[in-house]
Design a protein around this nucleic acid. Structure first.
Lengths: 259, 259
DNA sequence: TTATCATTGTGTAAATATTACAGAATGATA
DNA sequence: TATCATTCTGTAATATTTACACAATGATAA
């Protein structure tokens, strides 16, 4: 009782009235900062495993709206670009020895049994999104004890099939980066070549020749030089670039290979 | 009453006990035959609109099993390779002026109202599949009056958001064909070069130079010459080829561009 | 002030891949 | 045996991708 607020109590008791049954959304929120790719995870009260920020779908909202609502709750950001990548559905995917009706009973003070709607077979529609690490203030809530970034190479133990979701999201992101200007969602409006270069290397997890990389992005027209320079603390002032909307749309249509 | 069998009556009355609520699967079944790409659609009793073969998910089966069960019912084939491509979810996506509780009441003889579980908000997880047109015997069933192939360029009026689903499936297929040996699922084990050539031209909806096309598939190792010849009725006996499993897997991993 | 050093920025040649293009060989049929 | 639809193949021009290294900048330290 002490851990859980009214909203959460209400969700447990009346959730099935306001939310769809047997379907939920989960978000793989990638954060990028200083050449590292991280994932935002939360840890429920009372267990040592972590999970993706996810939630139920209101009867009045679309899949995307539901996913965005959940992501906004955890990140404070409301302009995230969410990309659906797969739905997961196997009968026992949300059965976990650590996340039990007993635990929920203890935490909520309510009598939660194994046939409570929350422990039913849920199909999860999954989205991923990218954001600048430093913009986010991870918010726990309800019965979530912690919410924090984890480097993709050092994921903790996770509930359900959430680790597979992260792996699949990363695969999808790496496939998409070849066809869409993914950095558009992630970099500030004006950015330098070393910045976008480091971003691509981090996402793909491999090094890319800096001369060839820049050449390709410029000859395809995806990025354009602004003629301005950034004054950064150390060393030289690099030139600033921006994404070109028109070339971006064109690349999307033509299924161009961008890297 | 007269149109509907016991299974269907039972589905209407007890379906919510055996199936997940608020989630369903829909299949875009592409059939290929003689340089034409078609989609398998069915038409319910009493309305003029067509729809995709779809269905509900049993509490004991996975998403894929559900989709395969539905596809098998309509095609008689049980070896289909189903590819999930997107889930659709907006609150009113299955509201259609032509497909009403009144119609279902009339057809079933039961009292079906707007709050019947079947008319609830359903999130649909969509799959596409490819099959050799001539292997399929389209089966109607339950309250489906017709089940037949429609050329992708001449789709009839369709219920709900099913036309969008077909369009999205086709986009996904055309994207996938650049990275996966899609024909693997569609062509017989041994096939000729003109056969695979025509298949790719049909799926992509554009012509491909026959010399360059063959060269690419052979230099990438995706297809291999068998050293056998096919005896076909007219004219020459073309050489037979087969897909190479190893090169196929490699292409998948490397995200190679195959066409 | 000058030397050092991390960072930024740039060009070319070789290799590879893609494209464009046409006609000869086969074997069934008339 | 002439005709015809179909199968099959090579090369040159062009475009793209890859590999590769050093000079310029300007902050910092000596």
């Amino acid at each position: 009782m002490e851990y859980i607020d009214d909203g959460e109590i209400n969700l447990l008791i009346n959730g099935h009235l306001h939310f769809l049954k047997n379907v939920s959304v989960d978000n793989v929120i990638f954060g990028y900062h200083e050449k590292e790719l991280k994932v935002l995870l939360q840890r429920p009260q009372g267990i040592v495993k972590w999970q993706l920020p996810g939630g139920y779908i209101k009867r009045t909202e679309t899949l995307n709206e539901a996913a965005l609502r959940v992501a906004t709750e955890r990140t404070g950001l409301d302009k995230l670009f969410l990309q659906q990548f797969r739905s997961f559905g196997t009968p026992h995917r949300t059965f976990d020895a650590d996340f039990t009706p007993e635990l929920m009973t203890k935490l909520s003070g309510l009598q939660i049994s194994a046939d409570h709607w929350m422990f039913d077979y849920f199909v999860s529609v999954c989205f991923y999104t990218l954001t600048e690490f430093s913009l986010v203030i991870p918010n726990g809530s309800f019965y979530m004890e912690e919410c924090q970034w984890w480097p993709i190479g050092e994921l903790p133990q996770m509930t359900f099939d959430h680790r597979e979701m992260v792996e699949e999201a990363l695969k999808a992101l790496r496939l998409h980066i070849y066809h869409y200007p993914v950095g558009y969602e992630l970099l500030p409006e004006k950015f330098t070549r070393p910045e976008i270069h480091a971003l691509y290397e981090t996402i793909l997890g491999k090094s890319l020749d800096s001369r060839n990389f820049g050449k390709k992005l410029i000859t395809t027209g995806i990025i354009k030089e602004l003629g301005e320079q950034k004054s950064i603390g150390a060393h030289r002032s690099p030139k600033l670039y921006k994404f070109d909307k028109e070339a971006y749309d064109n690349a999307l249509k033509e299924m161009m290979v961008l890297v």
